[in-house]
Write a protein that binds this DNA or RNA. Sequence first.
DNA 1: CTTATTAAGGACAATATATATCCGCAAATG
DNA 2: CATTTGCGGATATATATTGTCCTTAATAAG
Lengths: 162, 162
Amino acid sequence: MILKSQVEWALHCCAILAGLPQGRYLSTKALAELHGLPKEYLSKALQSLSQASLVETTLGPSGGYRLARPTSEINFLDIVEAVEGKSRTFTCSNIRANNPCRPKDFCDSKPCSVARVMWQADEAWRNTLKSVSLADLVETLSEDVPADIWKNTFEWVLQRAG
Amino acid sequence: MILKSQVEWALHCCAILAGLPQGRYLSTKALAELHGLPKEYLSKALQSLSQASLVETTLGPSGGYRLARPTSEINFLDIVEAVEGKSRTFTCSNIRANNPCRPKDFCDSKPCSVARVMWQADEAWRNTLKSVSLADLVETLSEDVPADIWKNTFEWVLQRAG
DNA sequence: CTTATTAAGGACAATATATATCCGCAAATG
DNA sequence: CATTTGCGGATATATATTGTCCTTAATAAG
């Protein structure tokens, strides 16, 4: 079990969008070049963000993507689920029902005990992701990334945004 | 991202092994028939458990698998990691290093901020799995599964264990 | 000792998913 | 009008998952 690389891409792209001046759009092309990613395929990840209403888009020159909500109102889980889907990481195929000792018409009152534990772990994972917002990420990044690199990066992308 | 079906299989098999009388072995064949699973492929999952030293095996008639430790000393994480491997569910390909604004010889002091959050969530998932033992599972199962079905099931598998 | 049974593991095939690439369309910009 | 852009469909490739088949060596039972 491993997350798609698109999850990593989407998170980094959102981090950049989160640091953009109000209202500015950034194109797939700029985001792909900044991160050294295949433009056409990155586009699919950005489309997922768009379908999840995490970003807004506009067409034409100087078009592209911008966040649809304040950075404090978008969290990691929003982004991960936009790309990976919302379904749980553990699927119960209810193999207990194959037990030959069960009456054929027997109906379980609860979900499988094994699944309940796996789903509880899944929720713990999601809750952690939910607890970190893009605002938190930007704050951490500005501590980690040297100020001049950070500044140059935004000048670089804004130049490509026309 | 989704866990292998072998994880579900391994967990259910361990639950059965956990309820077995001391010292008794159960064969792949019996476990496969009980759960309605492909014997040859289930065998791979059981081999994973064996390689992780969670179960002991013996050959020949009346051979098979039994738990290598008391049920209180085997938890969900042990089993999940035996099948899925121990590597994290999020891999950081360090795409920040592709940023053209970074000096080429620049060396990061910390892991990527994005990865740190993802790994934190991964740990929350693992901690939950670690907190539930096979003993806990057996207890839950005996509450959920009607006593007669539970009893019949063990008579059924023990009969096939010779 | 002989025979049946078993786990282990290698080779292989089938299927599903992830990772791309390419193209045409419609909307926006200037 | 010409260019740029997001969007979605079609298609191709690579990798992972799921499943089968076979051989080998060890073990237990008769």
